[in-house]
Design a binder for these strands. Structure first.
Lengths: 146, 146
DNA sequence: TGCTAAATGCAACAACGTTGCAATGGAGTC
DNA sequence: GACTCCATTGCAACGTTGTTGCATTTAGCA
């Protein structure tokens, strides 16, 4: 079940953050995007809709969203995607298609435990994991077959 | 068994790349570092030794090293570390200590297979994995206990 | 030693990200 | 609705990081 914009708004309010127009606009852009967006991407996309936001504001909003886990930063591209998993168990991971660039988020508690256990073998105490799988999504895989 | 500078030099030659003074200097700096270095870090460290390299050159050298797997880019910090695993099976992963910043590289074939299998459940065909565990290394863990 | 392609240096630029402070506006209260 | 307060935004200026094109140098080889 994917998280809706309304859910995000509720989380903002519940944590004592204001629901401002810029925040709603950024939520809207993230919601429609299929791929990670840089802060400047967000600015451009809003611009195309005739809306203007200062880039500093966008940076701050995206930082906030990440702190609240409403969005995540995808490391391999440096962009941001909205979180669709909510509080699902385990670290949130990404599958990134190298052909079309689309992102799919997933989580798996077992994988997290296995990863932490391996780290223990080195005396390392893992607190969370960043993980991105790179390859081909289902539809691009079919296309590359032919 | 950690990869030596000589091994890196041999790999450069074997692939038809020249073994230049700048490349040896960057290898030397990476070899001594305990943590990921940005290209500008490399430039500063060389500067402290009285050696000068243009930052563009450093970018190009680090890019080359990454292509040859002599070094890796650590995503969470954006810096580069030399690879100490060589051709060990499985994707090369990192454990990053949040306290002292040191890096430990490891690889585990089983974890890779499990990660790919999970992706298959979503119809995704993983080709490689980027993975960084964040937490406390053994010695920092002991310190935080007290 | 001389040759040549590969590698480096340089200059200019483009993109990305941050800081401090003044102006604005969301949300509660009257 | 009007008022108030403080979180939030806008603005300007700056700093860092990364890129491009072209002239110059140098590693490797004959």
């Amino acid at each position: 079940m994917s998280l809706m914009i309304q859910d995000s708004v509720r989380i903002l309010q519940a944590q004592g953050y204001k629901v401002t127009r810029p925040r709603k606009q950024v939520l809207g852009v993230l919601d429609q995007a299929q791929k990670p967006l840089s802060p400047y991407d967000v600015q451009r996309l809003l611009g195309e809709r005739g809306k203007y936001l200062n880039h500093v504001t966008i940076y701050r909003i995206l930082d906030l969203f990440c702190r609240l886990n409403l969005a995540h930063r995808v490391l391999s591209s440096g962009g941001f995607v909205k979180c669709i998993l909510g509080k699902k168990e385990g670290c949130h991971r990404f599958m990134v298609c190298r052909r079309c660039g689309t992102i799919q988020e997933f989580a798996d508690g077992g994988l997290c435990r296995e990863e932490s256990r391996l780290a223990e073998d080195f005396g390392f105490h893992a607190e969370y994991h960043l993980s991105e799988s790179y390859g081909l999504c289902a539809s691009c895989y079919r296309l590359e077959e032919s």
